[in-house]
Amino acid sequence: MPVMNYIQALNSALHNEMERDPRVVVFGEDVGRAGGVFRVTDGLQSRFGEERCFDTPLCEQGIVGAAIGMALNGLKPVAEIQFMDYILPAYDQIANELATIRYRSGGQFSAPVVVRTPACGGIHGGHYHSQSTESIFTHVPGIHVVMPSDPYDAKGLLIQAIRSEDPVLFLEPKKLYRSARAEVPEEPYTIPFGQAKVLREGTDCTVVAWGVMVHVCKEAVEQAARKGIECELIDPRTLAPLDEEAILESVRKTGRLVIVHEARRNTGFGAEIAALVAEKAILHLEAPIRRVTGFDVHCPFTLDPYFLPDAPRVLLAIEETVGF
């Protein structure tokens, strides 16, 4: 089985699906001829033609708005927003239009659009190339929010997203694009939404993380293990829908929970997970729930390594939770 990085895995998924389904179209800024600023759509235009993979004008609300119309009329659009930091002009189209059309039309219309966007920090991007704003989308019903942490999941979840009957926001931690590698089949396969992945089993403390933070936490839980603390590491993979039972089951076993995300803490998605556990498993808790997150500031350029959670911060939280 070939080893692929995250970009190659996504590119393979797009090739598979465009080959399989003539309704799939891929577009966005610099997506066509250049193959995307991160090369995720490389080779699609030369293979499938300019009508199915193309550059758009520089306008996020136009990209998502047009994608909605294409989906209504039988296409399967995969739209790229060049950076998640620039998705906000399209927020109205996503939250008020894309996510609502099935509901407000009484089920008469639906718009199964995939919006892909490079997200998260760690690449010296400053405020405008580093944000991880998943929680402003998980707040909106009617749209799935996905953030795979490795190339295998990225391919399977992207194909699942393209075949979904519902709109999907597909978040790609750009720091993993070239750094994460895995064995990935050339053939298409899917990974269902709402199924968390347990990366390490343990009985002392549950650690929940997604995106780049899964890799940070892998390091932290290994260090914890060397100190005799056995953590269970869970990657939800999709935040909406969330595999609630996987988290609850783990917390019932370990009695402790550390949530790690690089997004800012205030009303970050970690708060939702903490509330879930408080509502449904509080009597199993032996220590307060801890969050390790980005600071409640704007993503800084130079001090980015302080802003982003790292393994020592996660390890400290684990140790303090277990030692409570």
Binding site: G62, G65, A66, Q93
Partner: peptide, 13 residues
């Protein structure tokens, strides 16, 4: 907000 939808719909046609 419906105007870009019309454009995308026309693209599909």
């Amino acid at each position: 907000t419906q105007l870009p939808h019309a454009v995308g719909c026309a693209y599909a046609s």
